[in-house]
Design a binder for these strands. Structure first.
Lengths: 152, 152
DNA sequence: GTTTAAAATTTCAAGCTTGAAATATATGAA
DNA sequence: TTCATATATTTCAAGCTTGAAATTTTAAAC
């Protein structure tokens, strides 16, 4: 009983620490994107998802992948489209669907941004070696638990 | 050289996994707060910081603690104040400063919300035992690195 | 004591985000 | 076919968030 209460408290603290690290990292990356590429984190995230997919992607798959609402995906993609970085097209078989993809310009811009982005992460996570990363992967996988969502 | 590139890629992936877990957890907690307490994550976070402090707190300390901008802290506290959950008062010695604290109503409401909040976290992080939490603390501390910011 | 610079907070515009309602399309049953 | 239901997306209001400018107060230099 005593131990369970203690364990519960430690889990809460673990979450708070993880949230703190995540915010710190996001703030750092936001600054990098703003200063060096005049863009934002949500735009980068959307472009990263599209780049990784390597092919036109359903709007709903995009928002599910990023864990954001459909409405959110719509507005961010809208802005990217206005800037000529992404393009939307109605689905061929199912016309309810909207497919979105990076333009050539969007691909080029993302690739330029992604290099420095990776460098910044390596700066922040530089204290972790290969063994640490293996442990961290194991832990995060166990938190994600039996969820349906997959990363690739 | 080969290994460094590989390590860099793994660090990026580790960050993406951590971000994913953080979003998943935040989405879950947001849903809990919305359904059970008709409130939001940023309001809860501010109230948690004030509750933990246990005494009036400078606005700037609040925003630094939460890793959000000053303007953000202002607007969230403003809404809490309008609802009678927090109160602001000018600093006594230094009148540039604004001190903020929970009201009795705010304290009571937070404590009711916090119980279920902890339960939800225990649900999500239930797969981690005491040893796991020790490892996770070590890893997150190393990522936070030699930063100035402290949690307490 | 004035002036200048620094610090704490608020204000503001622009963009982000959610959750619910609205729209459009598809599918299946009668 | 036609109706009902389900699915995919967009629209919308309200709230969140940032970064920069403005405001207020303090501290320091002269």
């Amino acid at each position: 009983m005593r131990d369970e209460v203690d364990l519960s408290r430690r889990r809460v603290r673990a979450w708070l620490r993880m949230l703190r690290v995540a915010r710190q990292t996001e703030n750092h990356l936001r600054e990098y994107l703003r200063v060096n590429h005049a863009t934002t984190l949500p735009r980068f995230d959307v472009m990263a998802a599209l780049h990784r997919a390597g092919a036109p992607m359903k709007m709903s798959d995009l928002s599910r992948h990023l864990l954001v609402s459909n409405g959110n995906a719509t507005t961010v993609v809208e802005r990217l489209e206005k800037d000529g970085l992404a393009a939307r097209a109605p689905g061929q078989d199912d016309r309810r669907v909207v497919m979105v993809d990076l333009t050539a310009k969007g691909r080029a811009e993302f690739e330029a941004q992604a290099l420095g982005h990776a460098d910044e992460i390596n700066l922040l996570f530089g204290g972790l070696d290969a063994a640490d990363l293996t442990v961290l992967r194991d832990l995060t996988k166990r938190i994600e638990g039996g969820s349906d969502e997959q990363d690739g």
